[in-house]
Amino acid sequence: MLVKDEGPGIAEELRTQAFEPFVRGSATANIDGAGLGLAFVKTVAQRHGGKVLLDSALGRGSAFRLVLPRA
Rank of each mutant, 00 (worst) to 15 (best):
E12V: 06
E12H: 10
E13T: 11
E13Q: 14
E13R: 14
L14F: 07
L14G: 03
R15S: 04
R15D: 05
R15H: 03
R15F: 01
T16F: 09
T16H: 14
Q17N: 12
Q17A: 13
Q17M: 13
A18V: 06
A18P: 00
A18W: 06
A18M: 06
F19R: 00
E20C: 05
P21S: 08
F22N: 11
F22E: 14
F22H: 14
F22G: 09
V23H: 08
V23E: 10
V23K: 07
R24P: 02
R24Q: 05
R24W: 04
G25H: 05
S26V: 14
S26D: 13
A27L: 14
A27T: 14
T28M: 13
A29G: 12
A29E: 10
N30S: 15
N30F: 14
I31W: 10
I31V: 13
I31K: 11
D32R: 15
D32E: 13
G33V: 03
G33P: 06
A34Y: 13
A34M: 14
G35C: 06
G35K: 05
G35N: 06
G35F: 06
L36Q: 09
L36Y: 07
L36A: 05
L36M: 12
G37R: 02
L38G: 01
L38I: 02
L38K: 01
F40V: 09
F40A: 10
V41Q: 10
V41P: 03
K42D: 14
K42W: 09
K42Q: 13
T43L: 08
T43D: 12
V44Y: 00
V44K: 02
A45Q: 05
A45L: 01
A45G: 03
Q46F: 01
Q46M: 07
Q46D: 13
R47E: 01
H48S: 13
H48D: 11
H48K: 15
G49Y: 00
G49R: 00
G49I: 00
G49W: 00
G50C: 06
